[in-house]
Amino acid sequence: MQIRVQTYKGKDGRIRQGKTVSLLRYAYDPEKRRSKQVVIGTLDRWATELPPELDSLLTDAEHHEFKEWIAERDQQRQELAQRHHLLHAAEHMGWAAKALLAGADPVRPERIWEALDVLAKALEKAGYPRPSRGRGRPSKDETPTPDDLVVSLYDDPMLAAEIEDAQERVAALPNFIPLPPAARKGKGSDGP
């Protein structure tokens, strides 16, 4: 069995993954002497179980393949979420610090302190110990501010490169805006 995620072309021209998956089976056609793909059915891409009508159509081996596919899909989704949270952890902490400095009251401040301790222990356990500080009090220039932690879209190299790439693609597009009537030659102009 083959599990294929439906795709479509987005407005930007890129191929995107859709919300459904097709379950395909190869069936041998004796008249044509070759195999052909047969669609067993379609279901929601994020479904955790097969609908009863599809469940009855699959063999035991195909059930096993579907469960393996679900496990791999969920693993990839979890890894993507983990990378996203680590990428933006400092930025979210910067926003929280800005909110506190602006006078916002946290609902459960003890929970934030616990979260900071948990994060510090997880960093050390993962092999990223706290950097050693120089002797004496740090100067104001060495101490980061909440604004230093909040990343601007244009300061992030990955996002800046993506924005630049999008601007180049937009600049390469032809100008689809029609000329105003006065600028068209011979049409509607009162000039010579």
Results as ranks from 00 to 15, higher is better:
residue 145 T to F: 07
residue 160 A to H: 14
residue 166 A to T: 07
residue 135 R to L: 11
residue 142 E to A: 13
residue 152 S to M: 06
residue 147 D to C: 07
residue 154 Y to D: 13
residue 145 T to P: 02
residue 163 I to Y: 10
residue 152 S to Y: 07
residue 150 V to C: 08
residue 139 S to M: 03
residue 165 D to W: 13
residue 164 E to N: 04
residue 160 A to M: 11
residue 144 P to Y: 02
residue 163 I to N: 03
residue 150 V to Y: 02
residue 155 D to G: 13
residue 163 I to E: 12
residue 162 E to P: 01
residue 148 D to N: 13
residue 160 A to K: 15
residue 143 T to R: 08
residue 151 V to F: 02
residue 143 T to A: 11
residue 138 P to C: 00
residue 148 D to E: 13
residue 165 D to I: 04
residue 165 D to F: 13
residue 149 L to M: 12
residue 137 R to F: 05
residue 162 E to A: 15
residue 163 I to F: 10
residue 153 L to A: 11
residue 136 G to F: 01
residue 136 G to V: 01
residue 163 I to H: 11
residue 139 S to T: 11
residue 151 V to R: 08
residue 145 T to E: 12
residue 164 E to H: 05
residue 156 D to W: 02
residue 156 D to M: 01
residue 140 K to S: 09
residue 145 T to H: 10
residue 147 D to Q: 10
residue 154 Y to C: 04
residue 146 P to I: 08
residue 142 E to K: 06
residue 159 L to V: 12
residue 164 E to A: 14
residue 136 G to C: 01
residue 136 G to N: 03
residue 144 P to F: 00
residue 150 V to R: 03
residue 139 S to F: 01
residue 166 A to N: 12
residue 152 S to L: 10
residue 144 P to L: 06
residue 148 D to V: 05
residue 150 V to L: 05
residue 137 R to E: 09
residue 166 A to E: 12
residue 137 R to S: 03
residue 159 L to Q: 09
residue 139 S to E: 05
residue 165 D to V: 01
residue 136 G to S: 01
residue 143 T to C: 09
residue 162 E to N: 10
residue 155 D to Q: 12
residue 154 Y to S: 14
residue 157 P to Q: 00
residue 142 E to N: 05
residue 150 V to S: 06
residue 137 R to G: 00
residue 153 L to R: 14
residue 154 Y to V: 12
residue 154 Y to P: 02
residue 143 T to P: 00
residue 157 P to D: 00
residue 139 S to G: 13
residue 136 G to P: 00
residue 140 K to A: 15
residue 165 D to S: 07
residue 147 D to M: 09
residue 137 R to T: 06
residue 147 D to H: 12
residue 138 P to D: 01
residue 165 D to G: 09
residue 154 Y to M: 15
residue 154 Y to A: 15
residue 138 P to M: 01
residue 151 V to I: 14
residue 162 E to R: 15
residue 142 E to F: 05
residue 140 K to G: 08
residue 163 I to V: 14
residue 163 I to D: 10
residue 152 S to C: 06
residue 141 D to R: 07
residue 137 R to P: 05
residue 151 V to M: 14
residue 160 A to G: 08
residue 157 P to F: 00
residue 139 S to N: 02
residue 147 D to I: 07
residue 155 D to I: 00
residue 162 E to S: 09
residue 141 D to A: 13
residue 148 D to L: 06
residue 141 D to P: 01
residue 142 E to M: 08
residue 153 L to D: 10
residue 159 L to E: 05
residue 142 E to V: 08
residue 141 D to N: 07
residue 160 A to F: 11
residue 151 V to A: 07
residue 158 M to F: 10
residue 145 T to K: 15
residue 161 A to T: 03
residue 152 S to E: 09
residue 157 P to G: 00
residue 158 M to W: 04
residue 143 T to I: 15
residue 137 R to I: 00
residue 158 M to D: 13
residue 146 P to H: 08
residue 145 T to W: 07
